[in-house]
Design a binder for these strands. Structure first.
Lengths: 343, 343
DNA sequence: CCCCGTCATGAAACCGCTTACACCGTGCTG
DNA sequence: CAGCACGGTGTAAGCGGTTTCATGACGGGG
């Protein structure tokens, strides 16, 4: 069918071993032969058969990425980051969607094992401890990104932003703009990973700034636009004294909150300030544009890939390393300064 | 290392050929042996090595998808559709990003050839005729989705929506709502595929409805939010008599147009109606929510995958088949009916 | 009763590449 | 000058499946 290493060897009058060595640079070959072989390879457009190579080396140039939902902008940005460095290294990225289904996720891991993936990145996946244990049995190193294992005990290498500090910074930003009554729309209650940390950050910030936050100011959404709307309504209904600002745990929920506020007759930011999280494109598209916390997901993705390659090279499955990517508060128009201005 | 077909054969006291036959159901095996083999496979958790299999059959269970930008919601939705049917068929999807760079795209195609992909889908890629020719030389069948080859002459199988009719329907919708002065924000001038068709649809609709559209009503954007804003400004500056409605070729540009209109002191839909295209989530998130044309990208993706599998099974590289997926006009709040209402 | 076709099975070749090992020539050391 | 280390090269043995082909058992028709 297509041109093989034997064809090249014959044409260049050398052995297949030499051709292989030239391709992989695995051992010294004389300049003369190298030149001859390369010339023939070029001329015949030889591409080594990746199956044969994989069979012989038991390694592929594939790294797998498992995500819950590929059309989530946070995730797709992360994937772009991963892709970026993988492509540079000559690796191909296999993106698999689990739809958040644990069984499917297990299936995908097994399939990646069959494909002899050289490494796997779990992007934005909620994974608990018992799962982590099993994963370390896989043939490849794994790193998590954008979400960390739910229990504190770190075994899998992880690249993530500092959820606690990010929320503290967001609350401080609101506080600096004169807000002391601050509502919080967090993630689902069963999100034991980033959700619990962000809530912790919120509590810490409230404490250290001396804010008095009634429990009815804190509500749980599920990261969707619709839940953002609902949460806004709930805050409105359950409080006679409304917060002056609401911090949501994602831009999408913040968008829902803005819309919910509008339905309640509140306009943003005149009557209510709203702040998002992530700094997805949506934050810029909305009117008013969202103040938010920028999480550099592209960088998280590329850093995760780099960590994975480091593991692959060292041959270790996991070192427990934890890398934080710095975030940044972004000021836009959904938050009003109520300290200096007139009401 | 891991358990091989030989282990199974030995344990079940049969030959490797028999095990292989059981796995693939390629030839009759007695019930007795089948049972024994399956039992051992199950017990030892045997997974055939995909390299060895690929090497022997010269086929992989991978299909490739090449896209320009994975975080474009239109594209990621299409990918989800592809994934859906591929997963059912036991295939894995390799998503590759070309960043719209033709050279990179060529590289990716070659890499997919190396990986012996069984088929490839080009999602939303702008491809001209000379490229198409070369692609048909590849080892695998190719289908295009969401975008068709730029010249009329169809060779590659394609799954797409009817761009001409979709725009005609959108214009008709605006017309039915009393609009006769309609602006059009189209794609880049060098988009010879969907762009040219949409413009054609716009002209056809204008003609058949007897609308008088000055050329300054038609401007070219690049599908970005920012270009939507600019286009809006341009329409405003170049016309003393403004259109009453503007149709944009993507929700994103429509969002930019809304924002641009706001900057010009025009509020939507009171002073100006704006209509989008695609029906991405963004259309619902905006305020006012966008009237738009829903293109079922998930369905396009899954249909494209089905077409690809059909080609793979028939063994043909291309049949020139063209499949249209029906669209639908969605009414929301960015378009006002100026026929029945007061001014 | 014999011949032949059919079916189930196993032995072994093969897919294309990597790599352990053998081999050879060269230059250096003792 | 013998012996040895070493760099460059080729031979061939895998890697783990699939598949061709040979073999043997069995059943039915003449």
């Amino acid at each position: 069918m297509s041109v093989t290493i034997d064809d090249i060897a014959k044409e260049a009058k050398v052995s297949t071993a030499t051709v292989s060595r030239v391709i992989n640079g695995s051992k010294a070959v004389s300049p003369e032969l190298t030149r001859r072989v390369l010339e023939v390879i070029e001329r015949k457009r030889f591409k080594p058969n990746s199956f044969a190579r994989g069979l012989a080396t038991d390694k592929s140039s594939i790294i797998g990425v498992i995500v819950a939902d590929i059309s989530n902008p946070v995730i797709s940005t992360t994937i772009k980051g991963i892709n970026h460095v993988a492509q540079q290294k000559g690796y191909t990225v296999l993106v698999c969607e689990s739809d958040g289904d644990g069984r499917k996720e297990q299936m995908l891991l097994e399939r990646l094992e069959e494909q002899k993936a050289s490494g796997v990145i779990l992007a934005g996946m909620n994974v608990d401890h018992s799962r982590v244990e099993k994963m370390l049995d896989m043939d490849f190193p794994i790193v998590m990104v954008t979400q960390q294992s739910s229990d504190g005990c770190i075994t899998i290498n992880t690249v993530i932003h500092d959820n606690i500090q990010a929320i503290i910074d967001a609350v401080s930003f609101l506080y600096d703009n004169g807000h002391t009554r601050i509502g919080f729309i967090c993630g689902p209650e069963n999100d034991y990973s980033s959700g619990i940390r962000r809530l912790e950050g919120f509590r810490m910030a409230a404490d250290s700034l001396g804010l008095d936050i009634p429990s009815s100011y804190i509500v749980h959404g599920d990261f969707s636009y619709e839940s953002g709307r609902e949460c806004m309504t709930r805050i409105f209904e359950e409080n006679t004294r409304m917060p002056t600002a609401v911090l949501a745990c994602s831009d999408l929920m913040a968008a829902g909150a803005v819309s919910g506020a509008a339905s309640l007759g509140l306009s943003v930011p005149q009557d209510l300030s709203i702040m998002g999280f992530d700094d997805t494109d949506l934050a810029r598209y909305l009117n008013p544009s969202l103040s938010t916390v920028r999480i550099p997901y592209f960088e998280e993705g590329s850093k995760a890939a780099e960590e994975l390659f480091a593991l692959m090279e060292s041959g270790e499955k996991a070192t427990g390393k934890l890398v934080f990517i710095p975030h940044k508060v972004i000021r836009r128009f959904s938050v009003r300064n109520i300290k200096t201005h007139d009401s």
